[in-house]
């Protein structure tokens, strides 16, 4: 053991770090390069410019797509936290017949693969008239079953005395939840928030199915269509620029809150 061993540890980590970081650096540098200079190993160029980004903004309403994504993901996150906490509270702190049944149903639905419900869900959207509407992007994501379970688990450990004291002060259950439980629940709120936001922000398959008009497309969908639909005209630089525009906002948020991201996403491991 000792110093000599540690050198190998650092070397292997540095090598690994390079493998994970370099492609991103290469991508960022390529977005500023002229098309002819992209096929190089190195990152630098004397001809850095913004042409690739200009091409993206000229060809697709990417700004609108960004706003759509922010709006949809915010609604989904807000309601997943709101309803997750409400249902989680009922399932952990209130006594009523059927409670264990609901809990059992939730655990059961968690193992249902989405492949089985995808087609009927699309048909449902058609019948509701929600195709090409924000509703199809938001409403099915408004409740996170995993979120309910996380809130329930967290609320189970909050001492009953706090509830009893609040009851004496005349609080009903909603007041107990929002005034007493919420301030104590920061970690679980952050976890459910990040998980819901990431799931909604990165989803492509569902938007591809239910949204056809460009004005309502989410950012990942718009970037996908830009690439697959041929509007990028095979221009590597502008494809990468569109991808960079999709990646950068989330990477910036991640840079500040990486600990929360890692901890939240590691809890998905406990799901099974």
């Amino acid at each position: 053991m000792g110093k000599k061993n540690n050198i190998w540890v650092y070397l292997s980590l540095a090598f690994g770090g390079l493998i994970f970081a370099y492609p991103f650096l290469w991508m960022m540098s390529a977005t500023f390069k002229p098309e002819m200079e992209i096929a190089k190993i190195g990152l630098l160029s004397a001809n850095f410019n913004l042409e690739n980004y200009r091409a993206v903004f000229d060809k697709i309403p990417i700004g609108r797509a960004l706003l759509n994504s922010v709006f949809v993901s915010s609604c989904v996150t807000f309601s997943a936290v709101l309803f997750g906490s409400i249902v989680g509270y009922a399932l952990s702190r209130l006594q009523f017949w059927g409670r264990d049944l609901i809990l059992g149903v939730i655990l059961f639905t968690m193992v249902i693969p989405f492949q089985i419900t995808l087609i009927p869900m699309y048909i449902l959207m058609v019948k509701f008239g929600w195709v090409d509407s924000y509703l199809s992007l938001i409403v099915p994501g408004m409740i996170s079953t995993f979120g309910i379970l996380l809130f329930r688990q967290f609320f189970l450990d909050i001492p009953q005395d706090l509830i009893d004291a609040a009851r004496i002060d005349g609080c009903n259950d909603f007041a107990v939840l929002f005034k007493i439980f919420f301030p104590l629940s920061k970690p679980v709120i952050i976890t459910v928030g990040i998980l819901s936001f990431m799931a909604s922000w990165n989803d492509v398959l569902w938007p591809l199915i239910v949204i056809r008009v460009r004005e309502l497309m989410t950012m990942p969908q718009m970037v996908t269509i830009f690439k697959v639909g041929g509007q990028a005209e095979g221009q590597i630089g502008s494809q990468l620029a569109a991808a960079a525009l999709l990646a950068v906002p989330i990477v910036i948020v991640y840079a500040f809150f990486q600990r929360y991201f890692i901890e939240s996403m590691a809890t998905t491991g406990l799901k099974n």
């Binding site: 690994g16 994970f20 970037v223 590597i236 494809q239 569109a242 989330i250 991201f261 996403m265």
Partner: peptide
């Protein structure tokens, strides 16, 4: 290093795919 290795996990699959195609 932990944060670095985790970076691709949070980035959309669309970005990763467009990048890796190149």
């Amino acid at each position: 290093f932990r944060a670095l290795f985790f970076l691709p996990v949070i980035v959309s699959g669309v970005v990763i795919t467009i990048l890796w195609e190149q």
